[in-house]
């Protein structure tokens, strides 16, 4: 049976992991490669590096991070943030990323999705979405880190994304993001019902029960969390042990951490 995935997300600026709320009081807290390695040991099923760098130099630093992580961590690696062109896709994949995540750029230039899928395959094209509720059963898509309402209907957008050849959707709810009261179940269900491709839940996770709720009440394939893991409130292992008790299928790594394997 296919396991539900737990995906820690790391914000990276100029090649360093940063923690902080809303860009204020952002602190450099260490080497992304070390974080990635630690999450891998904890049993993360995938990792996301989110590049919050604006500068060209910072992008180079990000590629170094990807290169070094790919030599030590043998689970799928997604890189997002600032991807604008097919060349950005190519550079990121060549550095060792398995998937590339696009957000605002895909909204403004949907062709980026189809071109990338044609050249590199759908499996490596993730479309990140920031969306906010307008009325009952209706949400719109925001761009520029959730700052600008693009007035694009969420459900129409996810159907279009699928048609263009995206392999996966990472759905972030602006309404629940940062609130830590749980994932946006209503929005997740609406999107999961509209497409066949996997949907990753993002935004709002604050406790163990929130992971279980997303998997029990929706058809999402994975749950992403950032600060919860950053601030070491929970480990991936703790989340998985809890989910196993809840009867949710996850990849249990406690049995294969044994040194006997090598």
């Amino acid at each position: 049976m296919l396991a539900k995935r737990i995906i820690p997300c790391l914000d990276v600026r100029d090649g360093h992991v940063v923690k902080g709320v809303n860009f204020e009081g952002v602190k450099d807290v260490g080497d992304p490669v070390d974080f990635a390695y630690e999450y891998n040991i904890q049993g993360a099923d995938e990792l996301v590096f989110y590049d919050i760098t604006a500068s060209h130099e910072g992008r180079g630093a990000m590629l170094d991070v990807v290169r070094n992580t790919a030599k030590k961590v043998f689970i799928p690696l997604t890189v997002g943030g600032g991807i604008k062109t097919i060349d950005d896709f190519r550079d990121t994949l060549r550095a060792g990323a398995d998937k590339v995540s696009v957000n605002s750029q895909a909204v403004q230039n949907p062709e980026l999705i189809s071109k990338a899928a044609d050249i590199f395959g759908s499996q490596c094209v993730v479309v990140g979405i920031d969306a906010k509720k307008v009325s009952d059963g209706k949400w719109t898509v925001y761009i520029n880190g959730g700052r600008i309402d693009y007035k694009l209907d969420l459900i129409e957008w996810v159907k279009q994304i699928e048609k263009l050849g995206a392999g996966e959707i990472c759905l972030n709810s602006i309404d629940t993001d940062g609130v830590r009261g749980g994932y946006d179940i209503e929005m997740l269900n609406a999107v999961c019902d509209a497409v066949k491709i996997p949907v990753i839940a993002s935004g709002g996770c604050g406790k163990l029960e929130d992971f279980a709720e997303a998997f029990k009440k929706t058809n999402c394939s994975a749950a992403l969390a950032a600060s919860l893991f950053h601030f070491k409130e929970l480990t991936v292992n703790e989340v998985k042990s809890y989910l196993i008790k809840q009867g949710i299928p996850v990849r249990d790594v406690t049995n294969n951490l044994s040194p006997r394997l090598f």
Binding site: M1, K4, R5, Q123, G167, E168, K196, P198, S221, R251
Partner: peptide
Amino acid sequence: GLTIPHMGWNK
């Protein structure tokens, strides 16, 4: 009703 691609960890 199956999510496609088959993506993730399976036993």
